[in-house]
Amino acid sequence: NSLAEAKVLANRELDKYGVSDYYKNLINNAKTVEGVKALIDEILA
């Protein structure tokens, strides 16, 4: 998966839960796919 794909999928996942734009910005600023995954795990914990 590319970083861009990971960000799109992460933001879709956040949308399902009604997560605020603050967290979407964190996702969009992530530098690695692993970073995106770690943020998602933390946000949805």
Rank of each mutant, 00 (worst) to 15 (best):
Asn1Ile: 15
Asn1Cys: 05
Asn1Thr: 13
Asn1Leu: 15
Asn1Arg: 07
Asn1Glu: 09
Asn1Asp: 13
Asn1Met: 11
Asn1Pro: 14
Ser2Val: 12
Ser2Thr: 13
Ser2Asn: 10
Ser2Lys: 12
Leu3Val: 04
Leu3Trp: 01
Leu3Ala: 02
Leu3Pro: 01
Leu3Gly: 00
Ala4Thr: 10
Ala4Leu: 10
Ala4Asp: 13
Ala4Met: 10
Ala4Tyr: 10
Ala4Glu: 12
Ala4Ser: 13
Ala4Asn: 09
Ala4Pro: 04
Ala4Phe: 09
Ala4Lys: 11
Glu5Tyr: 11
Glu5Gln: 10
Glu5Gly: 04
Ala6Arg: 03
Ala6Val: 09
Ala6Leu: 14
Ala6Trp: 15
Ala6Met: 13
Ala6Gln: 08
Lys7Glu: 01
Lys7Thr: 02
Lys7Ala: 03
Lys7Pro: 00
Lys7Trp: 02
Lys7Tyr: 03
Lys7Gln: 08
Val8Asp: 15
Val8Thr: 07
Val8Tyr: 14
Val8Trp: 15
Val8Leu: 14
Val8Gly: 08
Val8Asn: 13
Val8Ala: 14
Leu9Asn: 15
Leu9Ile: 14
Leu9Val: 10
Leu9Arg: 14
Leu9Ser: 12
Leu9Pro: 01
Ala10Trp: 02
Ala10Gln: 01
Ala10Tyr: 03
Ala10Val: 02
Ala10Glu: 01
Ala10Gly: 04
Ala10Cys: 04
Ala10Thr: 02
Ala10His: 01
Ala10Pro: 00
Ala10Ser: 02
Asn11Asp: 04
Asn11Leu: 08
Asn11Tyr: 14
Arg12Cys: 03
Arg12Ile: 15
Arg12Met: 15
Arg12Gly: 07
Arg12Phe: 11
Glu13Gly: 03
Glu13Gln: 12
Glu13Trp: 13
Glu13Leu: 15
Glu13Asn: 05
Leu14Ser: 05
Leu14Cys: 04
Leu14Thr: 03
Leu14Ile: 09
Leu14Val: 05
Leu14His: 01
Asp15Cys: 01
Asp15Ala: 12
Asp15Arg: 07
Asp15Asn: 06
Asp15Phe: 06
Asp15Lys: 10
Asp15His: 07
Asp15Ser: 11
Asp15Tyr: 08
Asp15Trp: 04
Lys16Asn: 08
Lys16Cys: 05
Lys16Thr: 07
Lys16Arg: 11
Lys16Ser: 05
Lys16His: 07
Lys16Pro: 03
Tyr17Leu: 15
Tyr17Glu: 04
Tyr17Asp: 02
Tyr17Pro: 01
Tyr17Gln: 07
Tyr17Val: 12
Tyr17Met: 13
Gly18Val: 07
Gly18Ser: 08
Gly18Phe: 10
Gly18Trp: 05
Gly18Glu: 07
Gly18Gln: 09
Gly18Ile: 07
Val19Ser: 04
Val19Phe: 15
Val19Gln: 06
Val19His: 09
Val19Arg: 05
Val19Lys: 05
Val19Cys: 08
Val19Tyr: 15
Ser20Gly: 13
Ser20Ile: 05
Ser20Phe: 06
Ser20Lys: 06
Ser20Cys: 05
Ser20Val: 05
Ser20Met: 10
Ser20Leu: 08
Ser20Glu: 07
Ser20Trp: 07
Ser20Gln: 07
Ser20His: 09
Asp21Leu: 10
Asp21Tyr: 08
Asp21Cys: 02
Asp21Met: 09
Asp21Gly: 07
Tyr22Trp: 12
Tyr22Ile: 06
Tyr22Ser: 04
Tyr22Gln: 08
Tyr22Asp: 06
Tyr23Asp: 03
Tyr23Leu: 05
Tyr23Pro: 01
Tyr23Arg: 02
Lys24Ser: 04
Lys24Gly: 03
Lys24Tyr: 09
Lys24Met: 06
Asn25His: 12
Asn25Ile: 08
Asn25Leu: 11
Asn25Lys: 11
Asn25Pro: 03
Leu26Arg: 06
Leu26Asp: 03
Leu26Thr: 03
Leu26Cys: 04
Leu26Asn: 03
Ile27Arg: 00
Ile27Val: 07
Ile27Ala: 01
Ile27Pro: 00
Ile27Lys: 00
Asn28Arg: 06
Asn28Asp: 11
Asn28Ile: 07
Asn29Asp: 14
Asn29Tyr: 03
Asn29Ser: 13
Ala30Phe: 02
Ala30Ile: 05
Ala30Gly: 04
Ala30Asn: 02
Ala30Tyr: 01
Ala30Thr: 05
Ala30Ser: 07
Ala30Met: 12
Lys31Met: 15
Lys31Thr: 15
Lys31Val: 14
Lys31Ile: 11
Lys31Asp: 13
Lys31Cys: 03
Lys31Tyr: 06
Thr32Gly: 03
Thr32His: 03
Thr32Asn: 06
Thr32Gln: 02
Val33Asp: 02
Val33Tyr: 06
Val33Cys: 03
Val33Pro: 06
Val33Met: 08
Val33Phe: 06
Glu34His: 06
Glu34Val: 04
Glu34Ile: 04
Glu34Thr: 05
Glu34Leu: 06
Glu34Arg: 05
Glu34Gly: 05
Glu34Tyr: 05
Gly35Ser: 11
Gly35Val: 13
Gly35Leu: 12
Gly35Cys: 10
Gly35Asp: 15
Gly35Lys: 14
Gly35Glu: 15
Gly35Arg: 13
Gly35Gln: 13
Val36Glu: 00
Val36Cys: 01
Val36Tyr: 01
Val36Arg: 00
Val36Thr: 02
Lys37Ser: 04
Lys37Val: 07
Lys37Pro: 00
Lys37Leu: 13
Lys37Thr: 09
Lys37Trp: 15
Lys37Asp: 04
Ala38Trp: 12
Ala38Gly: 06
Ala38Leu: 13
Ala38Asn: 06
Ala38Asp: 11
Ala38Tyr: 07
Ala38Ser: 10
Leu39Phe: 04
Leu39Lys: 02
Leu39Ala: 04
Leu39Asn: 01
Leu39Asp: 00
Leu39Cys: 03
Leu39Thr: 03
Leu39Trp: 03
Leu39Gly: 01
Leu39Tyr: 04
Ile40Trp: 07
Ile40Gln: 08
Ile40Thr: 08
Ile40His: 04
Ile40Tyr: 12
Ile40Arg: 10
Ile40Met: 15
Asp41Phe: 08
Asp41Met: 14
Asp41Ile: 14
Asp41Ala: 15
Asp41Gly: 06
Glu42Leu: 10
Glu42His: 14
Glu42Tyr: 14
Ile43Val: 07
Ile43Cys: 03
Ile43Gly: 03
Ile43Arg: 01
Ile43Lys: 01
Leu44Asp: 02
Leu44Glu: 03
Leu44Phe: 07
Leu44His: 08
Leu44Gly: 03
Leu44Ala: 04
Leu44Pro: 01
Leu44Cys: 01
Leu44Ile: 08
Ala45Pro: 05
Ala45Met: 13
Ala45Trp: 12
Ala45Leu: 14
Ala45Gly: 13
